[in-house]
Amino acid sequence: MSEFRIKAGLAQMLKGGVIMDVVTAEQAKIAEKAGACAVMALEQIPAEMRASGRVCRMSDPKMIRSIMEAVSIPVMAKVRIGHTVEAQVLEALEIDYIDESEVLTPANKELHIAKSDFKVPFVCGAKDLGEALRRINEGAAMIRTKGEAGTGDVSEAVKHISKIKAEIAEYSKITDENELNALAKELRVPRSLLDEVLKAGRLPVVNFAAGGVATPADAALLMQLGCDGIFVGSGIFTSENPQLLATAIVNATTHYDDPKKVLDYSTDLGKLMFGVAIDSIGDKDRLSKRGW
């Protein structure tokens, strides 16, 4: 338990902040200078992975190490779903947080990593309450709603965070013991975990929004919907002026409830990410469908 508190505690320190995908030490420095609360080190941004059609794996530790050396904020890195050894490698590297991510090609089609076995904390993606609770039950110390990575379309992120909220509200009305037991069974989680969430009215760990964030207003929208912070993937470094946009997204995440400030942060940012509308992507090409 105390070990879990330390894992979940780092996520609590990231709240109200922005975690940015970076592929080089230079980008990591730009993110840190913009006020990012952490960076996610990876070889390719999701938009490129999406376009490549190749198998995407954990990044070369050499590249991750160069980013760990370049900045003093926490560094996260991704492993494939179910790839326990990639996670062991990153733990040996002393990474601060591991993202077991659907953006990479899954290594195990049935099981996710047994995350409680690790000392390093994990963040995992989720589209709904059941998925979030299954990951927490496996030991995830932080959740990010999946959205649809690499699109610049925020609608899936909105959908996933709204869904988790709506499910918690709906299930909280259930008082019948049998019904609650059936629900826990359907969600494939222990009843005690379900009870804890329904009693608190929120997930027991920090929940960031991710997938398709491309503007300061996108970040503020997700914060208004009740998430604890923001992951920005492809949006920043595919824009014309990454330093300017990264700074504006950080500012808007702090002052998400102040339209005059968000107006200021949204103004004159140059050309933004191209964007792929979610409806143009077939079901089988959606990264958020990975994970179970």
Binding site: M13, L14, A34, G35, C37, A38, I73, N251
Partner: peptide
């Protein structure tokens, strides 16, 4: 509070 000290300081300055 706790958080990332660089983030807190930068946001305080520019806002």
């Amino acid at each position: 509070p706790g958080g990332e000290s660089t983030a807190i300081s930068l946001i305080a300055e520019r806002t």
